[in-house]
Nucleic acid binder design. Sequence first.
DNA 1: TGCAGATCGCGCATAAACACGCAATTCTCA
DNA 2: TGAGAATTGCGTGTTTATGCGCGATCTGCA
Lengths: 277, 277
Amino acid sequence: MTEAADQTKRRPVRRSERMAAILESLTVQSSVEVSLLATRFAVSEATLRRDLGLLEEQRLLTRTHGGAVAQDLAFELPVRYRGTQRRAEKRAIAEAAAAEVPIGPHVVAFTGGTTTSEVARRVTDHGELTVVTNALNIAMDLVLRPQVKVIVVGGVSRPQSYELVGPWAEDFIAAVNIGTIFVGVDGISARGGLTTHDEMEAATNRAMIDRAERVVVVADSSKLGRVMLARIAALDVVDVLITDSGTDVDDTTAEIDAIRALGVTVVAVTAAPATER
Amino acid sequence: MTEAADQTKRRPVRRSERMAAILESLTVQSSVEVSLLATRFAVSEATLRRDLGLLEEQRLLTRTHGGAVAQDLAFELPVRYRGTQRRAEKRAIAEAAAAEVPIGPHVVAFTGGTTTSEVARRVTDHGELTVVTNALNIAMDLVLRPQVKVIVVGGVSRPQSYELVGPWAEDFIAAVNIGTIFVGVDGISARGGLTTHDEMEAATNRAMIDRAERVVVVADSSKLGRVMLARIAALDVVDVLITDSGTDVDDTTAEIDAIRALGVTVVAVTAAPATER
DNA sequence: TGCAGATCGCGCATAAACACGCAATTCTCA
DNA sequence: TGAGAATTGCGTGTTTATGCGCGATCTGCA
């Protein structure tokens, strides 16, 4: 498990990598030591203390004498540390999703999730937009872009997910009209519809969908056929599903066909090959 | 338009290709180095930094020293948007502000600003709290803490300031009850009251103040006696002002006395013993 | 409680990485 | 073919990351 398997890097490891590695260690180990980390990364202990200090400042761990221990929250890493999985797929999906947004002024909405975050970044490259979202991380990303007007749906934040949910969120949403919404889900299937693991999130996402003219679901192929606890909506509200043609072709295509049969336009992208064009 | 005309390319490696390749590396690698990329593409490091700069501008990655990391695992300090000015003062003010919050469950609110952001961090070190804020950066910071319940006021984000404002924000606020609110201002004076440079912000802040039982203003001494365009409220709504005893003692104390005369409890902290650089 | 050793925080020095402006080159388009 | 724009490399001064050494602080043990 400890792929701390020393690569015997003569060269010291850069700060960003060190910090990521430290956090990852803490998800399996619950505590780390300054001296060991210093050896592992081939840097001085002073430098390592600085790293730990920075991480502590962000509340991602707690310093102790001789090292650091995990913060409760470090077990469920926030979005930005979870993103490494299926990144190529997400990116390809995001490219395709950008094509769903018409040129010119338009109101686009995003629910939370790593895939939707990626989509949000791509989509907002293309001109002036108004964006509605209940995901804090997406809002933070977009707020710096002058050509994008960002409307954040108020509400209560579920820890671990940057999403704002609850009755306040739903009241807020009722006052907004959305052109195209990009929905991230934990599961999508012909039988189960759109599902997610959290019931509050499901209700809020449903409210947003109800206010949208056009519903686009973005989900990598691992979500296909999966059914989670909370149902967001049935598939008949969905206009388009953008996914990737995963590796296990059998199940994937079967499920895609079933979804198509329900009237959903399915776009299956191929995750980035060696190079594009 | 530039890269649309992607025709024959036999020269080294062009910018658009480099950028595509960099992004692709990041889908597999999570971090890249300037020096290695420069070698790989046979261009100078200066050019590569420019590439990375452009990509960062589009939020497709995050620069680090010596390279870049994929966007979703960038760890930056949320409150970066106004450097290190008067950091010692803000810190000292934040310490004092933490004392204003009673032990035990309590609803605390924060408006936007660098000082309030610092206060929010300190205050939430001390146990269980419910936090209401219209500042995206504060929300992002606190959402990581399991012991804090974060309620974000929905609304439209003003560019450059992470603050959510507007009529939607005010409607939202009307449904919330606040115990103690920490207000950041651009100016505070006996004559002008609490002021800020943006009128939307002023209205939203005012709405939050109206819902609070206790109003604490946090402002470093450079704000004392200043009057900006938009008035948030008169001083009679303020219970406490926390500031620092600045360098030019004459003006500062005069203004503080005037504010005290209006019934405001003024706490003037001394900026950190540590040297400021 | 008091002591020894480990750990820490902090300031300083150094080297790497950086941003910026300028000039030379290459490319685009008419 | 030539003018204008974009791209690139280099040199400048500035910022950032790192390692070392000092005195202060903490941990563990008697």
